[in-house]
Design a binder for these strands. Structure first.
Lengths: 112, 112
DNA sequence: TCAATAGTTCAATAACCTTTGAACTAAGGA
DNA sequence: TCCTTAGTTCAAAGGTTATTGAACTATTGA
C-alpha cells in the first residue's frame, strides 16, 4: 500500500493551483487549516462527499503536493505540507486559507 | 461581439484558482504583471501558443474574473483585475505573481 | 470600396476530470 | 479465526478541457 508523494522540487505552481481549483478540495484544506498541528482522518471529510469521492480528491491533493498522507493502523492521517508550500510559494497558502475559510462548503464539516 | 465578464460578486476562489492552474495561463498573467499599468494585446501572447489557443486561454481568464478585456479598434486590451482580486482574496495575486515570474514559460514572451 | 489586420467562433478530436457502486486490502478487536 | 473498520482500486459513464484549422466578424487604412 504505497502512497506516492511528489518531492519538494517536483511540486509546481500550476499543479497546486489546479488541485485547489475545486470547491470540495478547498473545503478540505480549509478544514485542515483549522488546526494544522492535528492531522485529520479521511473519515472526517465524508460530509463533503462519498467515501470513494473523498479518496479521489485527497489523492489529487496528495499528488499535487498540497497534503501529506501517513498510514497509521487502518487510518490515514492527512496534513498540509505547510513547510514545502511556504518555501516554494511564500504567502500563497495563507491567502488561500484566509479566503477559503468563508466558503459555504467549509461549513459543512462543522455542522451537526 | 460581446465580451462577458463576471461582476465582482460572481468571482469565486475555486474559479480563479482553476483558471490559474495551467502553465500557459500563468505565463500570461506573469507577463501582464510585468507592467500592470499598460494593458497588453492578444497578439503579444502568440509566442505561448496559436492564435486560437491564446484566444481560448484569455477567455478562460476573463470568465474566471482574472483579467478584463476591452475592445479598442480591432484590438483587445487585456489587464489584470487587480482591485477586484485584491479585495476578494488579499495577498493571493501577489504571491502567485511572485512565484509565476520564475516559471520557464514566462520567459518565452521575452525571448527573441 | 477593397484588402489587410486582429481576433473570435465553430466543429472535431483526444485527453483528462468527476462521480458512482462493487470489489478489494490491510489492521485491529472479539 | 472471523468480523468490523478504514480506506483504496477498478470500471464505467458522462462531463469538461485543450488543441487545431477553417471559416467568420469587425475595424482600419489605402
Amino acid at each position: 500500500m504505497s502512497l506516492p508523494h511528489p518531492t519538494t522540487e517536483q511540486i509546481t505552481l500550476a499543479n497546486v493551483l489546479g488541485a485547489l481549483g475545486d470547491p470540495t478540495r478547498l473545503a478540505i484544506i480549509a478544514q485542515l487549516a483549522r488546526d494544522e498541528a492535528t492531522p485529520m482522518r479521511c473519515g472526517q471529510f465524508w460530509d463533503l462527499g462519498s467515501k470513494t469521492n473523498i479518496s479521489y480528491h485527497l489523492a489529487k491533493l496528495r499528488e499535487a503536493g498540497v497534503v501529506r498522507t501517513e498510514t497509521v493502523g487502518t487510518s490515514r492521517l492527512i496534513s498540509l505540507r505547510r513547510e514545502d508550500l511556504d518555501k516554494l510559494f511564500p504567502g500563497l497558502l495563507d491567502s488561500i486559507i484566509a479566503s477559503a475559510a468563508d466558503l459555504p462548503l467549509a461549513a459543512v464539516v462543522l455542522e451537526d
